[in-house]
Amino acid sequence: MATVTRRGVEVSTAGSLPPVGQAAPEANFTQTDLSELTLSDLKGSNVILNIFPSIDTPTCAKSVRRFNEAAARLDNTRIVCVSADLPFAQSRFCGAEGLDQVQTVSTFRNPEFGTTYGVEITDGPLRGLLARAIVIIDAQGVVTYTELVPEIGQEPDYGSALESL
């Protein structure tokens, strides 16, 4: 279990992020067209998992926009934005914003992702949503970088994450 804060109040998560240097745990997601996506489907590419509570909040929206901008400069890298939002909300947001370099996926059918990756918020008003985190997985499926953002309303360290590639 880890702790982060929301507006200065501590909240707990379901565990810890996967360790750097180890194989990334398998994960299943629902895409905006309601089809399934697994991490195994992405092997052969570097993967940035941009994990957050909800695409309909200002900080989460900023992170999706920021990674969408960065995506054009990255070779062999897929940016997957992960939340418990319904795929319809994710699709609406990206369509309205013109974001086409990132892929949004939902955990609504596969809530075990939050526990497996240690990011499910287990108490407080956001209980059941995902904490803000970055997990980078190399083309061989090994975790190379992680960040659990200490304050849910704070943006991740984009520079460190992108430099780790």
Rank of each mutant, 00 (worst) to 15 (best):
T32F: 00
G124W: 03
Y158Q: 00
K62R: 11
R92L: 11
D157V: 03
C94N: 15
D138S: 00
G44Y: 04
G95N: 14
N46R: 14
E151T: 06
T3C: 03
C81D: 13
G141M: 13
A131Y: 05
V82I: 11
T30S: 08
D138M: 02
R109L: 15
S160M: 09
L37G: 09
I136C: 13
M1I: 14
F88R: 09
D56W: 00
G15Y: 05
N28C: 08
T146P: 00
E112T: 12
S106R: 08
L86G: 01
T13Y: 01
E151W: 03
F93G: 03
N110Y: 15
G21P: 02
A24C: 07
Y158E: 02
R109C: 12
S106I: 05
A27M: 14
E69P: 00
Y158C: 01
D123C: 04
G118H: 08
A24D: 06
V4A: 12
N50K: 03
G124P: 06
F29I: 10
N50Q: 12
G21V: 08
T3D: 07
L42G: 05
F113L: 12
L126F: 14
E10D: 15
E163R: 08
L148K: 01
D138E: 05
P53I: 12
L86N: 07
S54H: 01
P156D: 08
N68Q: 06
V47T: 14
I137Q: 05
N76I: 09
R92S: 07
G44N: 09
A84I: 11
P125Y: 04
Q90S: 13
P111V: 09
V4W: 02
D138C: 04
T122I: 14
V80R: 09
S91M: 15
F108G: 08
R127F: 07
P87K: 00
V119R: 06
L86C: 00
A2M: 14
V119G: 11
P87T: 08
R132E: 00
V80M: 07
R92A: 13
A24Q: 05
R65D: 07
A14R: 08
T104G: 05
Q103G: 02
